[in-house]
Amino acid sequence: MNFILDHYNYWIVVFLMMTGFYIVITANNLVKKIVGLNVFQTSVFILYISEAKVSGGTAPIVTEGATLYSNPLPHVLILTAIVVGVAVTAVGLALIVRIKRAYGTVEENEFKKMDDAI
């Protein structure tokens, strides 16, 4: 029991990761797929942030009396990864807009049928 409680943030990561992954695989609507992809990526952000915490450490700002700091590097990395995630979402949504214009639908099974008909 303690093992689960002590690492609760990692359980959240695993739960979010699997949820996002499941949505990406099963969703029929392309926008939902992008949402799933975002949830999946967000879980990784939490993973990085969790590993940055040094138990007993304060915020990484040099002040008197503090000797133990949390690691600021993963936060910086995740800022970059968030930017990457936003870019992926933007490209994905732009593609969805063009798919909607070309096919008139964003449901995967519907445009699959339309392409088979050609």
Partner: peptide, 27 residues
């Protein structure tokens, strides 16, 4: 060709999953 849009979207989903897996591994 409009099918290129769907090919690109599938590639985006697969590629992002792949890149995120690498990110998890590096983490």
């Amino acid at each position: 060709d409009r099918r290129s849009l769907i090919a690109a979207f599938r590639y985006l989903v697969m590629g992002t999953i792949g890149a995120t897996f690498i990110l998890i591994g590096v983490g």
